[in-house]
Amino acid sequence: MTSLQRYWDARAALNFILGGSGAGLIIAAAFIHPASPWPVAAGLAFIATGLFAVWLETGRKLRALHVLFNPFTSWMTREAFAALVLFPVGLGAFLTLKFLPVAAVLALVFLWCQARILRASRGIPAWRVAQVVPLIIAAGFAEGASLAVVLVQTPLAAALLAIALIARLIAWSAYRGEVKSEALEGAGRALQLGAIAALVLIGAGFYFTQAALPAAVLAGVVTLASGWWLKFTLVTRAAFTQGFSLPRQPVRGTR
């Protein structure tokens, strides 16, 4: 029985979902006080799970190391190298927080590579635009900040999430100005509404301090859900090529 595949499926989407969130969490961990090693450990676990999911998508799993062969032009290779460096440094940051800033920079590099993977796919209009890069980075940061809120539950983490949400809204707005894909309508609307709802919840938490933590956690969950749905839709549902169109019609017979 022949196996046939033409598009990336949920396994590839999971790499962008979990990898982005994990990298965002490690970046957010660098800003949280008091610093904690657990967000770093959770971030690495997310990234590892995402990479495992995309490994499941590859056709020849035992050749996985071949992914490292083309650092000169392939962003997938660069992402793999970024992960290879991030894991030992992240482990170091888990053991001693001195390495946390370096781990955060490497997580940003990993996130950047993920965004450029989509940008380099010239076949797909919803991916190849420059605006997809800030969108993926802002989305990853927002999801990471959400996880940070859920894990450490501090006002600073909630403030970080609010900043990340505003950045994600701006990035989405810039992206939507460039890409008019019907496939992204529902997920895009959910992303906007999710961000607004999360911002309202965080804002309410600053006024009603007794409810601040549950509101922040709920804001985090809403941010995660809306961000993950958008990435899933972007990778698996909006991956259309521009199709074929003729700039000229053949001239047959008499003119």
């Binding site: 990336w8 996985a64 992914v67 010239r122």
Partner: peptide, 12 residues
């Protein structure tokens, strides 16, 4: 080839 499918989605 590892069958990652990246070329598939990159081809216009």
């Amino acid at each position: 080839c590892i069958g990652c499918g990246y070329c598939m989605v990159a081809c216009p």
